[in-house]
Write a protein that binds this DNA or RNA. Structure first.
Lengths: 245, 245
DNA sequence: CGTACGATTGAGAGACTTCAACAAACGTGG
DNA sequence: CCACGTTTGTTGAAGTCTCTCAATCGTACG
């Protein structure tokens, strides 16, 4: 169980993101901090929202790794988004009510759950906050578009390098990465479902990246000796993450 | 040049979409109808917003066909979204200010341009409308996710069938399609850039679809004799379009 | 009637997949 | 603390989907 203090610290993670682009008023900040949030611990590989459910809470990742995914009739899985601490994986379905895919954990995760009504109430009281949340979903969508570009037009090698770069910056922005690497708790199978590849091919691509001295990866410890080089390999341009405007 | 009456008729196209999910008040409806909109005609294959521009207007497609796209360093293009009358192709970048890709026409199109400030003002006056616009962007994002699934995990054949089904329903919903077909003004090359395929392969896939009697396509006239059959071929489930909730 | 763009075809190559087996790492219970 | 089972990672070989290149055909339009 988390203490109240912890929860505040964790709400502030959310606050940091929301306030990243335009400034919130003190009142608005307080409203966000006062959102009632139930913290729940999920094991790895567990559903938070099942496809078709009509969830009553909105999730904030506090620790761990969460993904949005879709399973096709033939059993294939495509991971549609990766969510790290500070992210709200199902904000996309909050205004639409009906999610069209599942949300689940990839690693053991702490997830804050905020009742939809409380969020609704807050947005009614502070309409300007709607824009901040809206923006969050747009950044999420921008990331999805970048993945689309990769899936449609980049090689497996580029796409993989690109993803590793993206996660590096995103992890950095919430203080979970060092400048030369981070903890990547995804199996090669999960990477494959993210990148639209087979597990076998992911394995070979990772070996190529190692051979080129662009990464070392032992267990979940990813080391990136030369950020620039990896970014070049993945044609990575961070503009789409909107981290600094 | 359009008459004032025409413009109203066209604003109402927008209104229909915005009001599709939850009802707007009379005041809100009026605010939308009163948005000042400059109608501009664009030829086919012309940019409306160039990657990196900071646009001053927000676009509404009134007629024709518009797309969002990204060109990669090696010249490859990925089309990220298709926009038909009633759609707002750059609503995604409106709250973020900085677009991370271009928007252009695929066919000769009438586009309504609404100054950002006017939109901002309206949302300030009627904060509840923000949610309606937000929802629009989320449906757009849901479509993008569905494309991601296709790009990552579906065969060229399924993916193509899926896209044809999606456009069919979307065109139907704005009265631009009959139940047995519609006008598809995309070249095979443009389809290829949408589907993440080569032009040659799109050509062969279309021939396969013809051979299976799922479509006939002469010029831009697409005929779908059996909607169900094509949907089955594309594993198409329209839920993600959120057309009816 | 020529020109240009889009559609079509054929042949060969390459990227990625599938299948299948094995090795290594990990967690768990005895 | 070791044995064991399960999961994850690695390797090889064969196959297939899709791409590239390059030529040809059709058709609309000036």
């Amino acid at each position: 169980m988390k203490t109240a203090l912890d929860e505040q610290a964790q709400s502030s993670l959310l606050l940091r993101k929301l306030g990243r682009i335009d400034d919130l008023t003190d009142d608005e900040e307080r409203a966000v901090l006062n959102l009632p949030m139930k913290v729940k611990v999920f094991d790895a590989d567990v559903d938070i929202i099942r496809d078709g459910d009509r969830p009553s809470d909105c999730a904030v990742v506090l620790s761990g790794f969460v993904c949005r995914y879709k399973i096709l009739p033939d059993g294939k899985r495509q991971i549609l988004g990766l969510y790290i601490p500070g992210d709200m994986p199902d904000l996309q379905s909050f205004p639409l009510q009906v999610p069209d895919h599942g949300v689940g954990t990839l690693a053991r995760s702490n997830v804050g759950l905020i009742p939809h009504e409380c969020l609704q109430d807050m947005l009614r009281s502070y309409p300007n906050l709607t824009k901040a949340f809206w923006r969050e979903t747009l950044i999420d969508a921008a990331i999805a578009r970048e993945w689309m570009i990769g899936l449609g037009r980049r090689s497996a090698y580029q796409r993989t390098a690109h993803l590793l770069c993206e996660l590096h910056l995103r992890m950095m922005s919430v203080g979970l990465a060092r400048s030369d690497g981070y903890d990547l708790p995804l199996t090669q199978n999960e990477l494959a479902d993210t990148l639209g590849l087979s597990t076998v091919h992911v394995n070979r691509v990772l070996q190529d990246l190692r051979r080129e001295k662009l990464i070392t990866l032992r267990g979940s410890a990813l080391h990136i000796p030369d950020t620039r080089a990896l970014q070049a390999a993945g044609e990575f341009d961070p503009a789409y993450l909107h981290l600094t405007d």
